[in-house]
Every structure is written in structure tokens, then in C-alpha cells.
Design a protein around this nucleic acid. Structure first.
Length: 456
RNA sequence: UCCCCGGUAGCUCAACCGGCAGAGCGGGUGGCUGUUAACCACUAGGUUGGGGAUUCGAGUUCCUCCCGGGGAGCCA
């Protein structure tokens, strides 16, 4: 008999006398002559209740169908006489596909700590919370493509391997085809004949495509070798990077705001059931947070004004606040959590604390850069208008003593048909943290990679 | 890399001033005609993260290493 997914079975309009489901036992409750089994197949948060008695073929195997076992159940889908569920399956045939030894199966039908589940990342998707998390992750990934597709963006795949150590964001992982400790590592005898790295951003590769296809975006893995051992950092994470031709910083901020609102709205509607789990057990404020997000325009604050606000706050910050210094975590939190109490776009940063490619403003002091700060998560988006003027960009590269020759291809885009353009990067895992209320980035990645951590 | 907290049964945690290592859940066995965090009874389960030191005696104090969590820096 053809397998029905539990999500579809639970959504049935009418009973059925022949249905087959396959999944994993979450819990079993035995009475004297019959048993209840709750089966989950990952298609949705809810499981389906199976009632089995001696009339069912294979009933003798029920004693081995403990938590974690893979089973197939055939029977009739009937309205449940019990409380708590609309439908249940009265089994006519039970099959044990894969047993799970109850003495050694690590997952119990009780709540486990995130720290414990992190150690069994290969089994945690079988829990309600992580099943829900990864369904939401999938759904939001697709929503990202929907958003850009609806606006005529081209989805661009930029390389994971790069020879450029000047992408301007963070520490890089080196890649080699040489034996460990070989003297030729990264040199002339190595695979590429020169040092190779894992990408820290697709932006520089995306810009030329924006200046050809108009609007493009990348969505893929990104690698940072910083020894940032915090709940908000991973060595491997996914980043969304739109890049738009004929766009300035205001267009950039408008796009970032529309993008996030689209994703928040999508989570509230398309991921409703899964999201409610997080609202109940992880962070009771997540739904309200998303609704606040949608309710009004994001606050926008020039950096200089943000500095004034921080100074006027009367707060005794650990780190100094003055024009020209980067905002520290405590400052970002004050702006997003205390001052605005919601998402805030801070823009026009001093040029000395920002990357070389950001467009210089006429004041000679600032660049057209923006960060989106959100409560609890901190920096969710970083973006800018790109310096499109060849002479200004060349001068800036020289001023910073960067290797001009390495940027030949990049500067070509400013040499031939240059145009204003802008873009931003969004850390996908941080978005998931914001939406679900999960506080550790390692719990929104299937198999997290971080400093001193490379398991599974 | 720095600062703080923690590591005790499969899981979550107790154990007072240094004095016999415990509970709940989970597991096993038995019971129960509709359960749903099922319920009731019984039962097994420990090198207290590793190493060293102090002491008549260390889960508890000291040193050191390992692992986990939180904060900072850096960033998305």
C-alpha cells in the first residue's frame, strides 16, 4: 500500500479504511490487551496516534516498538474517540522496520537540554524542537528565493574556493591539496599554484554580475576562521547577499527592510505550527517580536545621531562612545533594545572603521554603509553602497596599502560602464535565531562547525 | 585569546562546616479495557570529567589538564 505522510493523514477531510504510514515511534502507552503508539514521520510537528490490539497482524512485535523504532502501520483512519486528536489509525498490520534498543537509545520522551542534544546532532532532528527548527529553516530558505524571484533577481552561484585573501571580511581558512606539513603548501607546487582559501563573502564576485544582470543575489555557505567562540558565531554559516545595480544606500535599506518583513510574514503564516512550539517552549515573545517587526517602518539612524543618543543616554558604558569608534555590543544592544525597542538601521559610518569598497560620502568622513541591528541578536545585516568611481576607489585602495594589482578585475567594472550599485549580507542563521528565539547559533545549524568543533 | 560559572546514575539535578552518594524522569519486570508528560507496584543502575596534592577521612579544599555553558573582543 502506498505510504501517506502523516501531515496529509492528519489533514484528511474524511475517514479512510485503508491507509499506510511509516515513521518513528515517539512514545507507546500499553493497556492490558492493546497499545497506543504515537508515530512521527517528520512531515509535520504532530504525530499520529495508532491504536493496536491483537486483531492487528504483527501485534506481537509491539513490545519492540519503543521510542525511536522505525515502523510501518497499515489500518483505518478513523475519528478518534479519545481526547487530544481528531484522527487516529486503528491498525490492521504493524511492521517493525528498524528497532531502537530502549536501553541505549539516547532520546527519551522527555525534554532534553540543548547542550546534551548538541552532542547527538545526528539524532536531535528526531525531537519536536529540532524537527520544527529544520522545517522552518527549509521553508525560510525557499521564501528567500521567492522574494528575489518575484523582484526579478538572478540567483548567482559564486565560488566557495577563492584565491583572493583580500575580500575584506574576517580571517580565512586556507585550502590545500598537499600532504599535511608539506613544505609546498599554498605555494607554487600546490593545486592552484598559489594560496587558496574558503570564501568569506560572495560580494566582490557578485558585483560584476549586478553590473551585467541588474539585480542578483547569492545564497550559500560562507567560512570565517575567526576564533570567535560565542553563541552568535559559527565557522561555517549561510549568507544571503543581494547586489543591485543603479541603487543607492536608501534603496539598499528599503530592500533590506522589505526582505526581512517578507521573511517574518512568511514565518508567521507558512510556519505557524512549528513556530508556535518556539513561542511556547523557547521564547514566549517570538510571535510578538515578529508582529512588531511588521507593524511599522524600521527606525533609521545616522551613525552620528546614534553616537549622540548613546552619549545622552546617561548610561555608563564599558567602552567609550565617540565619533570614529565602532559600536560595541553594549552600544548596539542599547540602541535596538532600549532606545528603539525594535529593529534599527544605522547608516553613514565613519570610513575608517568600514571596508575599502564602501562608497564615500561627500562629507569626506563617512561612507554609505548600513547595519541592521535587532534586539538580542545584534547585527543581522551589514551592507553598503559600493564605491563606483574608479579614481576614488583606486585612491582608497592605495591609501589603505592594499595590493592594487590583486583588484584588477574588480576595478575593471569601474573602468567600463561603471554604475552606482549597492548590496548587503544577511546571516541566515542569525535570522533563524531572531525568528525562533533560539539563543545559540549551533542549534540552528544541522552540524555546526565552530572553533574547536568539527564533529559529525 | 581573556573573564566568570559548571562537570555527581542513561537524562535533569540534590548532597549543610571535609564524615555511609540521593531524588525525579528514563530503563527492566509485573498490573491496568481509551491512553496521550498515562497511571500503580517492584527492581537494576555510580572509578562524583582525568591526573596530582593536603587530610585519619575529599563529590566537597588546593594545583593542573580536558570538556561544556555564559560574557568580552572580532564579525554576519
Amino acid at each position: 500500500m502506498e505510504r501517506t505522510k502523516i501531515k496529509a493523514a492528519l489533514a484528511s477531510e474524511s475517514p479512510s479504511d485503508a491507509i499506510c504510514i511509516k515513521g518513528w515511534v515517539r512514545t507507546r502507552r500499553d493497556a492490558k490487551d492493546f497499545s497506543f503508539l504515537e508515530i512521527n514521520d517528520g512531515s509535520c510537528l504532530a504525530g499520529i496516534q495508532v491504536v493496536a490490539d491483537s486483531a492487528a497482524e504483527g501485534f506481537g512485535l509491539v513490545r519492540d516498538m519503543g521510542t525511536g523504532a522505525a515502523v510501518a502501520v497499515s489500518g483505518a483512519l478513523i475519528a478518534s474517540p479519545g481526547k487530544g486528536q481528531k484522527w487516529e489509525i486503528r491498525a490492521t498490520r504493524l511492521e517493525l522496520i528498524g528497532a531502537a534498543d530502549p536501553e541505549t537509545y539516547p532520546l527519551q520522551k522527555k525534554r532534553h537540554s540543548d547542550e546534551f542534544l548538541r552532542q547527538i546532532a545526528h539524532l536531535r532532528p528526531r525531537t519536536n524542537k529540532y524537527g520544527a527548527l529544520f522545517r522552518i529553516r527549509s521553508s525560510l530558505s525557499l521564501a528567500i528565493h521567492d522574494f528575489f524571484a518575484a523582484r526579478g533577481f538572478v540567483y548567482l552561484h559564486t565560488p566557495i574556493l577563492t584565491g583572493s585573501d583580500c575580500e575584506g571580511a574576517g580571517e580565512l581558512f586556507r585550502v590545500t591539496a598537499q600532504a599535511p606539513c608539506s613544505p609546498g603548501t599554498g605555494g607554487a607546487g600546490d593545486f592552484f599554484g598559489k594560496p587558496a582559501y574558503l570564501t568569506v563573502s560572495g560580494q566582490l564576485a557578485a558585483e560584476p554580475f549586478a553590473l551585467a544582470l541588474g539585480d542578483v543575489y547569492t545564497f550559500g555557505p560562507t567560512f570565517r576562521a575567526e576564533k570567535s567562540d560565542t553563541p552568535r558565531h559559527a565557522a561555517e554559516f549561510w549568507m544571503v547577499e543581494p547586489e543591485m545595480a543603479f541603487a543607492d544606500l536608501t534603496d539598499d535599506m528599503d530592500m533590506a527592510e522589505a526582505f526581512l518583513k517578507h521573511l517574518a510574514a512568511h514565518a508567521l503564516t507558512a510556519c505557524k505550527d512549528d513556530l508556535e512550539l518556539f513561542a511556547r517552549f523557547v521564547d514566549t515573545t517570538v510571535l510578538a517580536t515578529l508582529e512588531t517587526f511588521l507593524a511599522k517602518p524600521f527606525a533609521r539612524l545616522p551613525y552620528a545621531e546614534a553616537i549622540d543618543i548613546l552619549r545622552a543616554s546617561g548610561k555608563n558604558f564599558e567602552y567609550p562612545v565617540s565619533f570614529g569608534l565602532d559600536l560595541q555590543t553594549e552600544h548596539e544592544r542599547h540602541l535596538a533594545e532600549v532606545h528603539v525597542k525594535g529593529p534599527v538601521l544605522v547608516y553613514d559610518y565613519p570610513k575608517d572603521i568600514k571596508a575599502f569598497y564602501m562608497r564615500q560620502n561627500d562629507d569626506g568622513k563617512t561612507v554609505a554603509a548600513m547595519d541592521l541591528l535587532v534586539p538580542r541578536v545584534g547585527e543581522l545585516i551589514g551592507g553598503s553602497a559600493r564605491e563606483e568611481r574608479l579614481d576614488v576607489l583606486t585612491a582608497r585602495i592605495t591609501e589603505l596599502s592594499l595590493p592594487l594589482e590583486a583588484y584588477g578585475w574588480y576595478l575593471d567594472t569601474r573602468r567600463f560602464g561603471s554604475a552606482p550599485h549597492a548590496g548587503f549580507g544577511l546571516g541566515f542563521e542569525r535570522l533563524l535565531m531572531m525568528i525562533t528565539g533560539v539563543t545559540n547559533i549551533r542549534d540552528v545549524i544541522a552540524y555546526p562547525r565552530a572553533y574547536n568543533q568539527l564533529e559529525f
